[in-house]
Each structure stands twice: as structure tokens, then as C-alpha cells.
Design a protein around this nucleic acid. Structure first.
Lengths: 220, 220
DNA sequence: ACTTATTCGGAACCGCAGTTCCGGATAAAA
DNA sequence: TTTTATCCGGAACTGCGGTTCCGAATAAGT
């Protein structure tokens, strides 16, 4: 139930770069600073997309996003050449947040392995069930060859694997469940929830059941 | 791993009615028998749709179905006025099969409650992960107000609830997990699997974990 | 204030998938 | 065989959503 925060909701990252070239202007292709209005619009779009995608998922028409951002479609396309690129930017932000959270748990040597895994998975589920775009991205995990967030997903898997491994070592969870199993289970749970207007409370209950299923104490 | 069969794969049901009026021709709106070719086409379409929907889901364009059935698009629309109506017919067939299977377990007083629920859920998962259309239908469960299979889903829930209740009584599973929880968990599991080219074997493993999670023996 | 490189905005374009329509084919009744 | 009610087939229509394009607007340098 505790919220782990890493960056403010509106923080961008990924390949968004509304800043001036800042540092090394060095020898070659330095990016010229964006015009003031361009920079403002860029951010507006990102924020609008973040809100709308979280609520309605990728399915929403870009016109809506543009409208919400108070910007023309042309402008939107100037900043993000493709709908997918916009989606990607958002999801990348989300994944980075998740990665950061995972790191917190990995570096935290206070709490014991089982609890750490448990806590992270719950946070994972919370994020995924709150941001619809996130779990839609999770769905296509294996599919979409091109989109860049797939590689980030691999990083996430790696992080979870660390937590899982530790929990296995400490005897908290079964050794015969892989990280992919866990991810499938968690994202599946979120999915089922997402399509039924189920709130986070309910999702957490389902996650509890899944976690109970991967614990050592469980019978076969 | 045992396969429960109820009807041959090609059997139709639902609102398909390629037969002659057969029985009561009684007083009013009796349906005239279809012309021979019409009847043949009707069945062809149903069969083609069953195969394609199972493999590719609803997303597939109807042209493909028509082609596969060796029939023009116009013909397809003559028999099913809407893509959804065709989809509905297929899913209804599937749900009926599932319902019949559930009944088998309900009526079978040999096996004990826990095992019965376990067996049915596995069969449920198998069907849902094999027939893509089925779990896509499962997804929209709460959403699509109009489509008729939603009511059938309720019947399914009722059946599962019987099995669950018995298993709770016999002390096999926890009393704090509802039937909807179980369905969400199972269909969620299938979903995660479906989007990663995971075979039934893998799905069954995930289901095992879920089942372990709802059993009495589990710790919190 | 003037100039211009850059950005804005949204009408128009394009392709895709569902659906309609109707002239031609045909099963089956006469 | 002729007739005709029914059915077939697929070209064309429709609406939707992503993307392109270019004249108008404007930030920022002189």
C-alpha cells in the first residue's frame, strides 16, 4: 500500500529532449536549441499523452491527444513522427520509473528477500493496473520487434530475476518458478483486472493469491 | 492432461440453424427450409470461422474467413449480418462446450471437490489458451453490453461457483477467494500466455501456481 | 521594425476493414 | 424445359484513424 516514488509524474525522459544542447557542443552534429513555443508544445503533448494513454490505452486516436494538449495534429506529428513513437516515449518513461524502483529494492539490504520481492511485485502490479498503456505494452512484450521498449523490458526482467533469485536462496519462494512465469502471472493478473474496471485494491488481492502460489509453504 | 470432449469440433449450435423446420410447423412464422447450397455454405462458413478465429482471434478480416470458406463476402453477410454475429456464434459454441464440461464435473460425485475444481480449471485454461477467440471473448466479459455470450458467461460463473463452493466446504481451498477472482486469475493467465506464443504445457504450469495460491495449505 | 528560419495548424489524403447492393447464377417447383 | 424464388459473388461504398503537406503564424536574431 506504500507508494514508491522516483520522479514526479510529469517528468519526461526517454528520447524527449526539449533542452538546449547544454553540455558538449563539441565537434559535430550538435542539436540546436528548440524554439520556445516548440519546447512548450513538446512538453504539453507529452503530458497530455501521459494522462490519456494511462486512462484509455493506445487505442485512443491521436487527434484526441492533440486536442487535449491544445495543439494541432500537425504539431504533434512534428514532435513525434509516429503514433507509436509517442507511445514509446511514454512507456519508456514508465519503464524507467519501474526500473528505478526495482533498483531501490535491490540495493536495500534491510528487508529480507521474500519481502522485497513481494513488495516489488505489488508495486509492479499497481503501476501496471493504473497506467493502462504500461500493461498494454507488457502484452505485446514478445511481439513487436521494432519498438524500443522491448529491450527495456529485458532489463526489467533481469532486475526481477535478481530479486527472485535471492528469495529462492533464502527459502522464501519455490525454486521451480522462473522470472518469466512471475511476469506472466503478474501482468496477466493486471490484464484481467484492467478489462473489468477493477480497482487497485482488488488487483492487490489477486496478486496476493499469485504470490501465495509461488511461496515455499504452498503445497503442490 | 486428459481431454474432455463433448461434441465434435465441427459441431455447430447457438443460433445456427441450417436444418429444415423439422418439428413444429405450427401456426405462425415457420422458417422455410434453406436451399441446399445455402445450407452447405452456412456450414462451411461456420467451420472456416471456427478454425481461423481459434488461430488468429477476432482481429482477422472477414474476407479471409470468406476466402477460407470458399465463398464470396456477400454470401457470408447473407448468413451472418455482422462480423460480430459470426464471432458470437462461434464463441457461443465454445461456451456451450465448456458449460457441458462443467456439468460433467458437477454431476460426477466420484472425485472429491478439490480435485474436481482443479481438473475443471485446467480444462478451462486449456480451452481458453487453445481457442484464441474464447479468451478474447473472456476479456471483454464485462464490457460489451450487447453481445449475447455475456449471459452465457454468467452461467459459466454459476457453474464454477458450485465447484468452488464444494471445494471450500471440503476444506480444499481458501474461503476468501471468490469465483470472479478465480476466473480473473485463470483468464489472465491464459491471456499472458496467449500473447507470447506459450504452449499449453506452459499454461498448465502457470495454472498450477494459481491453484496453489487458492489452496488451504498456502500461507498468507 | 524587418527578416527569416522554424514551427503551427488542420484540411486533405490514404489504406484498411466492415457493410451494402444488385446483376448473374441456380436449386427446385411446375 | 420453363419459371421463379432464392442465393451467390464481388465491386463499390462508408467511416475511421494514421499520416502528409503547405500556407499562415511567429520566435528570435539584426
Amino acid at each position: 500500500m506504500s507508494e514508491v516514488r522516483t520522479g514526479s509524474p510529469g517528468s519526461m525522459s526517454a528520447d524527449a529532449r526539449p533542452e538546449t544542447p547544454s553540455a558538449t557542443d563539441s565537434d559535430a552534429l550538435a542539436v540546436k536549441p528548440m524554439r520556445a513555443d516548440a519546447q512548450r508544445n513538446h512538453e504539453r503533448i507529452l503530458q497530455a499523452a501521459e494522462e490519456i494513454f494511462a486512462l484509455d490505452g493506445v487505442a485512443v486516436p491521436i487527434d484526441i491527444v492533440a486536442e487535449r494538449a491544445g495543439v494541432g495534429i500537425g504539431t504533434l506529428y512534428r514532435h513525434f513522427p509516429t503514433k507509436e513513437s509517442l507511445f514509446e516515449a511514454i512507456v519508456l518513461t514508465r519503464l524507467n520509473e519501474l526500473l528505478a524502483i526495482a533498483d531501490v529494492f535491490i540495493l536495500d539490504s534491510e528487508t529480507e528477500p521474500g519481502a522485497a520481492l513481494d513488495a516489488f511485485l505489488r508495486e509492479f502490479a499497481r503501476q501496471a493496473s493504473e497506467k493502462r498503456d504500461l500493461f498494454e505494452a507488457l502484452d505485446q512484450a514478445g511481439i513487436d520487434i521494432k519498438s524500443r521498449f522491448v529491450e527495456r523490458l529485458d532489463e526489467l526482467v533481469a532486475r526481477i530475476d535478481i530479486l527472485r533469485e535471492r528469495a529462492v536462496q533464502s527459502g522464501d519462494i519455490r525454486s521451480d518458478v522462473g522470472t518469466h512465469d512471475i511476469m506472466n502471472l503478474i501482468s496477466g493478473t493486471c490484464h484481467a483486472a484492467g478489462h473489468s474496471g477493477v480497482d487497485n485494491q482488488e488487483v492487490q488481492r489477486l496478486v496476493s493469491i499469485v504470490i501465495a502460489g509461488i511461496q515455499r509453504t504452498s503445497s503442490v
